[in-house]
Design a protein around this nucleic acid. Structure first.
Lengths: 255, 255
DNA sequence: AGAAATTTCTTGTCAGACATAAAGAGCGGG
DNA sequence: CCCGCTCTTTATGTCTGACAAGAAATTTCT
């Protein structure tokens, strides 16, 4: 494992800002953990050894470990070392942790679980949004829909617009806790559309689903918003699992 | 602000384990942030100045700041300082953050929002648990109910049993993301019963509500479990708001 | 006045040392 | 032989002081 000051990709481009060393190390180790390369119970190598190997100061490495500990991924014990925490203690809804999980192709169970959560939260959120939304919320959602229509779901911009729509909807609930699920929902949304876009030829247009939700919210019709959102999530899940099954068959056939 | 190596309370007792300096500082500053003493946009005092004032090394203080940054509460910028993040970026569902919020009496809106989240998640979770629970899940839930009955809701042990019941239920959903909401639900549960216990004379017995949920899960009856949980959450919310209103009147009368 | 160079300030990183707790080995006594 | 105590070992925990780097503020030059 080597320390990269910038996320993998072209380095010169102005894209993302340079990450500090501890953040990069935390991400690297975090990826190793959520991907299962480091299993719960495993103890990380010693601080001196690791920091030396990565050619960073021990202080920098320690700050990285602190970040991971703050997210529940590891726990440091004197004399025993820094040990990977059992999965139940991970802060799965932490944006970073979730992002790390979705940097790989998540397994079926993880994906299903996240969709179950969406299915629990988003319909009610849509209903709440229909009851409480401001005109400003509407404006943001409309703009997001326009972005989806304009760029399409294959493009990065389109995916961002999709996420923006769901984020605006959650914000419109006027519930800070619900709104803080934005990262979770966004991860599912982004990855799903990405998955469909890259692996599947025929890409069902989910824009109408979104528009139905939007219209219900415009009309301040909670019941309709809830139903429309249920349909949206269900269809998104179906599309995703269908695509997966196709890939699965293809892979099996190739192997 | 002074660094306390142990959480406030009697120090000699074996209760909680000694927290390391960065964790204590992170908690102290975290409390100042979530309580509003430090407002979003405020910049914390410089590292040298603060670490000097707290009489800890700069490295220790920096690790504390890293913890807060990992939870989205602050963001460090060169030359500008470490600044408190806008509220929308806080990781509200992080167990520590939520715990800090609930170390004070949360405002009505926060409490209402958290109950809304419970109301969205727990009924469906109960239904899922009814469909998927193992015998082991049942055993844990039964034991928790027994603990509630034995110790009562006023005692610490009773409150822990209450939390344990909800935790076991969420775990029985077999959904890691739902299960990771345990801390959030637990915070609401614990604080609510605590509130009722300390401030209110007549303390409605919520044990029957829990037992109805439990029985439905035993019977593998998702619909009944969902309905029972809806009732449980609604009653808990009503109890809490009622108690608050009483206190409010009392305070107003006293003042 | 406007752009470019410079200063300045704050976080970022490094290096090495010592402190401390907890696991494990070793030893003594029951 | 087993139990419990002490001592050693070892990893994290903490401190100190120094320098690097980047961004804001200031100054200087055109």
């Amino acid at each position: 494992m080597t320390v990269m000051r910038r996320p993998a990709g072209r380095s010169g481009r102005a894209g993302r800002k340079a990450l500090r060393i501890p953040a990069v190390i935390a991400r690297d180790i975090g990826l190793l953990i959520v991907s299962g390369r480091y299993q719960p119970g495993d103890v990380l190598h010693g601080e001196i050894e690791t920091s030396d190997r990565l050619q960073v100061s021990r202080a920098a490495y320690r700050e990285a470990v602190r970040i991971l500990a703050a997210k529940g991924l590891v726990k440091a014990l004197r004399k025993v070392g820094t040990r990977v925490t059992p999965r139940e203690e991970w802060h799965l809804l932490d944006p970073d942790v979730l992002g790390w999980i979705f940097e790989f192709e998540p397994d079926d169970e993880t994906l299903a679980s996240l969709f179950e959560l969406r299915r629990m939260v988003e319909p009610e959120a849509a209903a709440m949004a229909a009851a409480r939304r401001s005109d400003e919320d509407l404006r943001v959602m409309a703009k997001a829909l326009q972005g989806m229509a304009q760029h399409g779901l294959q493009s990065k911009a389109g995916r961002l617009a999709d996420q923006a729509f769901h984020a605006a909807l959650l914000r419109a609930t006027r519930n800070a806790f619900v709104a803080s699920l934005t990262a979770s929902v966004g991860a599912a949304v982004s990855w799903t559309t990405f998955y469909k876009g890259t692996h599947s030829r025929q890409l069902r247009d989910s824009l109408p689903d979104h528009q139905r939700v939007h219209e219900a919210i415009v009309r301040r019709d909670p019941k309709a918003a809830r139903m429309a959102m249920i349909e949206l999530v269900d269809l998104a899940l179906r599309d995703t699992t269908d695509a997966r099954k196709r890939i699965g068959r293809k892979k099996r056939a190739t192997a």
